[in-house]
């Protein structure tokens, strides 16, 4: 499982490298473009995800201590947090679509008044990185739902709770990637 997480880090690693390279090439563009991201929404999402990581960790702890019901409840809270995250993300995306802040070829400078000729690149990266992350949120959610179902069925006890722990690890990774994405995309400049 840890190995699998390493592969995930490498997968995102490629995107981070692209980010760094273009940031070095066009620092002023990044500066201009990042003002168009909604810091408040990003910050709320960060808090939501960190909170969900805590609930997930607690759920794993409860599974370890033979308290499947509590574990189930904490996982439910995690799922709610994930949904909140996605809803906020959805509103952010909608806003971007509205302003023509879209990747590459669909970028529409007339609608948003960005002057830097390469500004579209920032939004290409923004959508690729957050989009891939969103996909991982969905995968993480389905994993947690599956584990919840198995908890309900009474599969886990203090001797066997590996799937809970693994889903937890995965969820922490999803969280961690966001913690990197947030400052890199929203808080630069």
């Amino acid at each position: 499982m840890w190995l699998f997480l390493v592969t995930e880090v490498m997968l995102f690693g490629g995107l981070f490298v692209a980010y760094i390279i273009f940031r070095n090439l066009y620092p002023e563009m990044y500066h201009e473009a990042h003002h168009h991201l909604n810091k408040v929404m990003g910050a709320i999402n960060t808090i939501v995800l960190i909170f969900s990581s805590w609930t997930m960790a607690t759920a794993v702890g409860m599974a370890q201590r033979n308290e499947p019901k509590k574990s189930f409840r904490y996982m439910a809270v995690t799922i709610v947090c994930a949904c909140v995250f996605l809803v906020i993300k959805f509103f952010e995306y909608e806003h971007k679509f509205h302003e023509g802040l879209l990747p590459g070829g669909y970028f529409d400078a007339a609608k948003n008044g960005l002057t830097h000729p390469k500004a579209d690149l920032f939004f290409s990266l923004y959508f690729m990185m957050t989009g891939l992350h969103g996909l991982h949120v969905l995968v993480g959610m389905s994993l947690i739902v599956w584990v919840m179902w198995r908890t309900k069925r009474g599969d886990f006890n203090s001797h066997y709770y590996t799937p809970v722990e693994m889903s937890g690890l995965y969820w922490h990774l999803v969280d961690l990637i966001w913690i990197y994405l947030f400052p890199l995309l929203y808080l630069i400049g």
């Binding site: 070829g105 690149l121 990266l125």
Partner: peptide, 10 residues
């Protein structure tokens, strides 16, 4: 989507 990461034109 023409994201332009590999396209010099974009």
């Amino acid at each position: 989507l023409k994201i332009g990461i590999f396209d010099a034109k974009l």
